Computed example of a mutant assay.
Amino acid sequence: MPDQEGEELVERAEPGPEMEIVHLLRAVAVDLGRHSTRFAQRNGMHPTDVRALIALMDAARAGEETTAGHLGTALGLNSAGTTALVDRLERAGHVRRVRDARDRRKVTIEVDERAVALGWSHFGPLIDRAVDLLREYDERELAAVRGFLTGMRKAAV
């Protein structure tokens, strides 16, 4: 006989349009992860390297400088792991350490333009397809998609 907690889990998993969307979201996340893994493998990178480059590019797009400490926190890495990651990316020519002009103790991490070009060569077609799909939606539908994805990001942390 199932316990009350088990019965509650069954109730939450009832089929319906909401669960269909949840399963589609999970499938998209898995597919995007595989796409990213292929990029990492083809370019001799670890999947965390790709996540780091994405975090750095997102920060740059938001006008934020990223120190190694901030990057480590964003990726859930300790100090030693972050240093090894940045060293690896720097040796590969994907990032550079830049000393602050006002405070030489502060070092930020910047993505090299060649890494951006490499990323676009792999992810560009996928991004273009996503943009094409989104152009088929009206403003109300885009707001709904944006709201759902923003809510899911908040729920996932």
Results as ranks from 00 to 15, higher is better:
E5V: 12
G6F: 07
E8H: 09
E8P: 00
E8M: 13
L9E: 15
V10M: 11
R12V: 10
R12D: 07
R12N: 04
A13K: 08
P15W: 14
P15M: 04
G16C: 06
I21Q: 10
V22H: 04
R26E: 15
R26T: 14
A27H: 07
A27L: 12
V30Y: 11
V30D: 05
D31R: 14
L32P: 00
R34F: 15
H35P: 01
T37R: 08
T37A: 09
F39P: 02
A40H: 08
R42E: 15
N43K: 04
M45E: 03
M45I: 03
P47I: 12
T48R: 08
T48G: 00
T48D: 03
D49Q: 06
L53E: 01
I54F: 10
D58Y: 09
A59P: 00
A59N: 02
A62L: 13
E64C: 01
T67C: 02
T67Y: 02
A68C: 05
G72A: 06
T73Q: 07
G76I: 09
T83I: 13
L85N: 01
L85Q: 01
D87P: 00
L89E: 00
E90T: 14
R91T: 11
R91Q: 14
A92H: 09
R96Y: 07
A101H: 11
E110C: 01
D112N: 14
R114A: 12
A117M: 05
A117N: 03
G119C: 08
W120A: 03
S121I: 02
G124H: 12
P125F: 12
L126Q: 04
D128W: 02
A130C: 10
V131L: 15
V131E: 13
E136H: 07
E136A: 06
Y137L: 15
Y137E: 11
R140C: 00
R140L: 09
A144S: 07
A144C: 03
V145S: 01
R146P: 00
T150I: 05
G151V: 05
G151C: 07
M152L: 10
R153P: 01
K154Y: 13
A156E: 10
